[in-house]
C-alpha cells in the first residue's frame, strides 16, 4: 500500500479524522493570530496613552452595558473619507487599554473614536436623555435613567484590580485612591484635581452631567465620551515610522 492510500486511516477512524481536523484548523488560526502577540509592530509606540481613570472606567462599563457598541464603532479606518470626517485614523495603541475593545462592526450612529471634546457636556446630557431633542432624525434610544442612577463608587476598585491582574499599569496608589479619584473627577473645582491629573495625565475634572448630588451614571458616561481619542497628541506622532 503506497503512502497515498494511507489517507484511509483518517477516513475509517473518526477519532483520527477529528484530531486531523483540529490540527489543520489550529495551524490556520495560529498563523493568523499568534504573530499579533509577538510582533512588536502590532502596537505603535505613542506618547500619552494611559489607563482609564476610575470615573472613565465606570463610564466605559456603562457604554458596554447599554450596548452602545452595537451601533457605534470606535475605529476610524485608514480611508480618505473617514479621516476627512472623523480625524486621524485610529491607532492600535489607542485601544491598548480596552478589554474588550469597542471597535464595533456597525455604524447606525457615527464613529465615536474621537468624539471627545467635540461637543459640550450639556449636549451629551441632553442627547442621552432624549437624542431627538438634539438631532431630530436620530434613531438612538433615549437613556434618561443615567442621570438618576448613582454609580457604586466603591465597586470600581475591584474592576481596576482585575485589569491590573491582566497587566494594565494600574499602580497600587491608583487602586488605593480609586473611590476618591472617582468622586474628585466628578466634582467642579475639586481640591484633589491636581493629584488626579498627576496619576492620570490629561484627566479633566468637573460635574459632567451638571446635576447636583452624588456621582451618577451620566457623569461617568460623559467623562468617558469626553476623553475618547484625546490622549494621543498627533502633532508629535510620527506617522511615517508606523506605516503598515
Amino acid at each position: 500500500m503506497s503512502l497515498w492510500h494511507k489517507h484511509q486511516i483518517f477516513e475509517k477512524n473518526s477519532i483520527f479524522m477529528l484530531i486531523g481536523v483540529l490540527v489543520v484548523i489550529s495551524i490556520g488560526g495560529l498563523v493568523e493570530v499568534l504573530p499579533l502577540f509577538y510582533l512588536k509592530s502590532t502596537i505603535e509606540k505613542v506618547e500619552g496613552m494611559r489607563p482609564y481613570t476610575p470615573l472613565e472606567l465606570a463610564g466605559r462599563n456603562i457604554y458596554v452595558r447599554e450596548g452602545c457598541y452595537n451601533c457605534h464603532s470606535q475605529m476610524i479606518r485608514s480611508l480618505r473619507d473617514e479621516v476627512e470626517r472623523y480625524g486621524h485614523y485610529s491607532l492600535a495603541a489607542e485601544s491598548m487599554y480596552d478589554k474588550p475593545f469597542q471597535w464595533g462592526s456597525k455604524r447606525n450612529g457615527p464613529d465615536l473614536a474621537r468624539v471627545g471634546a467635540k461637543y459640550s457636556d450639556e449636549w451629551h446630557k441632553q442627547h442621552l436623555d432624549n437624542p431627538r431633542s438634539m438631532v431630530p432624525g436620530s434613531i438612538m434610544p433615549a437613556n434618561p435613567w443615567l442621570g438618576k442612577t448613582e454609580v457604586a463608587v466603591n465597586e470600581i476598585q475591584m474592576d481596576m484590580k482585575v485589569l491590573a491582574f491582566q497587566g494594565q499599569p494600574y499602580s497600587p496608589q491608583m487602586i488605593e485612591n480609586a473611590a476618591k479619584d472617582m468622586v474628585t473627577q466628578a466634582t467642579n473645582d475639586a481640591t484633589d484635581a491636581d493629584g488626579l491629573a498627576q496619576r492620570y495625565p490629561k484627566a479633566q475634572s468637573r460635574k459632567f452631567s451638571g446635576l447636583d448630588g452624588p456621582v451618577n451614571e451620566a457623569d461617568a458616561l460623559i467623562a468617558y465620551l469626553q476623553m475618547l481619542g484625546t490622549l494621543v497628541d498627533f502633532k508629535i506622532y510620527d506617522g511615517k515610522a508606523n506605516l503598515r
Binding site: V31, L34, L39, L243, R244
Partner: peptide
Amino acid sequence: IPLISGHTPGIAGWTSRGAVT
C-alpha cells in the same frame, strides 16, 4: 505572511496607512 520580527512587505511596498496618506 507574518515572520519572526515583521512580515513579508510585498514588492509593491503598499501599506494601507501609506495609501491613505
